[in-house]
Design a protein around this nucleic acid. Structure first.
Lengths: 120, 120
DNA sequence: TCGCTGATTCGACGTTTGTCGATGTGCTTC
DNA sequence: GAAGCACATCGACAAACGTCGAATCAGCGA
């Protein structure tokens, strides 16, 4: 094994989205329910949900804060909500020059949709 | 058409689920975001999410409280959470004798899944 | 280097939430 | 009608949340 230097393994953690089978097919474990509830909680506020949908529907799949911050609350509050969405793993951010761009983390979106889909 | 008596029209109110196009296709209006956020909020607690998944995955699509109430919190708390889910329109309840049975409101589930699905 | 603008962090606040024990209600069976 | 079980409501309380103004940080251009 040639483990010269394992610095900063850039693996996008395959563990990121193990969740979950549709709710209609099996009951959630306690651990999974905690994980999924955290994601739902991130979207459980009108302002956050609007911010999220604005990023998701923005051309190119990304938007800078200045593009989406007119949602009726102060600018610090917008920043606070974006941080929540980031911490929940629903958004990623990247600074480019003066502006900070946000985009959605598509895998997570699919996980939530999958959980909610009818298993038939 | 032999409509002798149209008692208890079994219409599942078409108005029930106007919401919404996928988040990737358009930004939510303020009104829609309030409506959808309320649904997400109902699932934004681990205990509620487990209760919901237990009802959803239970045979026959319904479960009485006694079947699902061992989730680690007291009985009044379970009742409180089931009420929240009911008020959010995610569950319906019906008393049959001593027991109260809960089942999921399938249209609403589809609305949330649709919102989260990639418009692709 | 000095300001200017975009964005985050901090500290404080009123409100909402999740939880519990105690109590109340509805139904069944003696 | 009394007792017992299933479930809901009430009242209280600590913790978490959403919001703001003020302060701070990070680039950019003069």
């Amino acid at each position: 094994m040639s483990n010269l230097e394992l610095v900063e393994l850039p693996v996008i953690e395959p563990e990121a989205v193990p969740c979950c089978p549709p709710v209609t097919s099996a009951a959630l474990s306690e651990a999974d329910s905690v994980k999924m509830a955290a994601m739902f909680k991130a979207l459980a506020d009108p302002v956050r949900l609007r911010l999220f949908s604005r990023v998701a529907s923005h051309e190119g799949g990304e938007a800078c804060v200045c593009d989406i911050q007119d949602v009726g609350v102060s600018q610090p509050t917008v920043s606070h909500h974006l941080k929540k969405l980031r911490e929940a793993g629903l958004l990623t951010s990247e600074r480019r020059g003066t502006w900070v761009y946000y985009r959605v983390a598509p895998e997570v979106l699919g996980a939530m949709a999958g959980l909610l889909s009818a298993a038939r």
